[in-house]
Amino acid sequence: MVQLEKYGGVTFSHIADFEIWRLFMSQVIHVKQIHMLYNVTSLFIIGTYIERHLGSVRLLMLWLLSGISGTLISTLFVSPPWNLGTGGSQAIMGLAAAGVVLIYRRMDMSIGLKIATGFALLPAISLDIVFAHYPKPGHVFGFLVGIGVCLFFINGFSKEQIRNKGQVG
């Protein structure tokens, strides 16, 4: 994992040194290929549903805000040098949270969104519990940020803007 620092792994000291590029790169580098495959598959499946409701720009903002904040929080709970933030799981948890919001608010009750949300959420939490014995703080924080961002997007814009997916012009 520490080898990924040169590729974009992030800690708070990197941000203090104004290495802002790491906030984005840390979302796309992964320790294990199977983990990356799961995140990409989750992004594709649940992202398709979320994009229908929020639009592509807001989907990207949701993904980045959940991922960056969750990744940074996750670095606080691991001792150096292993406190390097990598992977997109926190962003996927944010998208899963948006799925939960859309289902809870009855904006999308499709079986597809329910399956996509479960696919994104259940393996991540299950693996956390099996290996760490608790949900990882970065995953929980990414999920909470996802709820907040999604609620902001669906409450902060008119229904017509949501229907038009926030298209400008």
Score class of each variant (00 low, 15 high):
Trp21Tyr: 05
Met25Gln: 09
Ser13Gly: 03
Ala124Thr: 05
Thr86Arg: 03
Gln161Tyr: 12
Ala96Lys: 05
Ala97Gly: 05
Ala124Gly: 01
Phe18Asn: 00
Ile73Asp: 04
Ile73Ser: 02
Gly146Leu: 01
Pro81Gly: 04
Gln3His: 11
Asn39Ile: 11
Pro135Leu: 14
Phe152Gly: 01
Phe77Lys: 07
Phe152Asn: 00
Ser13His: 08
Gly70His: 07
His14Asn: 12
Val40Ile: 13
Thr48Tyr: 12
Cys150Pro: 03
His53Trp: 06
Val149Thr: 04
Val10Arg: 01
Thr48His: 09
Gly67Asn: 04
Thr71Tyr: 00
Arg106Leu: 12
Ile147Met: 10
Gln161Gly: 00
Ile73Cys: 05
Pro80Met: 12
Tyr38Phe: 15
Gly85His: 08
Ile29Cys: 07
Phe24Glu: 01
Val145Leu: 11
Val149Leu: 05
Ile162Asn: 04
Ile115Cys: 06
Tyr49Gln: 03
Phe143Asn: 02
Met25Asn: 12
Ser26Pro: 02
Leu62Lys: 02
Asp108Gly: 14
Gly85Leu: 07
Met109Arg: 14
Thr11Trp: 08
Gly94Trp: 02
Gly67Leu: 08
Gly8Arg: 04
Gly88Val: 04
Gly156Gln: 10
Leu43Gly: 11
Tyr104Gln: 06
Gln27Ile: 08
Leu95Glu: 01
Trp63Tyr: 14
Leu4Gln: 07
Pro135Met: 13
Thr11Asp: 05
Leu127Met: 15
Ala116Gln: 00
Arg163Ala: 06
His53Ser: 07
Gly118Ser: 10
Tyr134Pro: 02
Gly112Pro: 02
Met107Trp: 08
Val78Asp: 00
Ser110Arg: 08
Leu65Ile: 12
Leu64Ala: 10
Gly138His: 01
Leu122His: 03
Gly148Tyr: 10
Ile129Asp: 03
Ser126Met: 09
Val2Pro: 02
Gly142Asp: 02
His30Phe: 14
Ser26Trp: 07
Asp108Phe: 15
Phe152Ile: 02
Thr75Asp: 00
Phe24Leu: 15
His30Gln: 08
Lys114Ile: 09
Ala97Gln: 11
His30Ile: 04
Ile129Ser: 09
Phe24Arg: 06
Ser26Lys: 06
Leu37Tyr: 00
Ser89Ile: 03
Val101Lys: 07
Leu65Val: 13
Lys114Met: 05
Phe141Thr: 00
Pro123Gly: 02
Lys136Val: 13
Glu5Thr: 14
Ile111Gln: 10
Leu23Trp: 10
Val2Met: 09
Pro80Lys: 15
Phe157Asp: 00
Asp108Trp: 15
Trp21Lys: 13
Met109Trp: 13
Met93Leu: 11
Asp17Met: 15
Ala97Asp: 04
His133Asn: 04
Met36Lys: 06
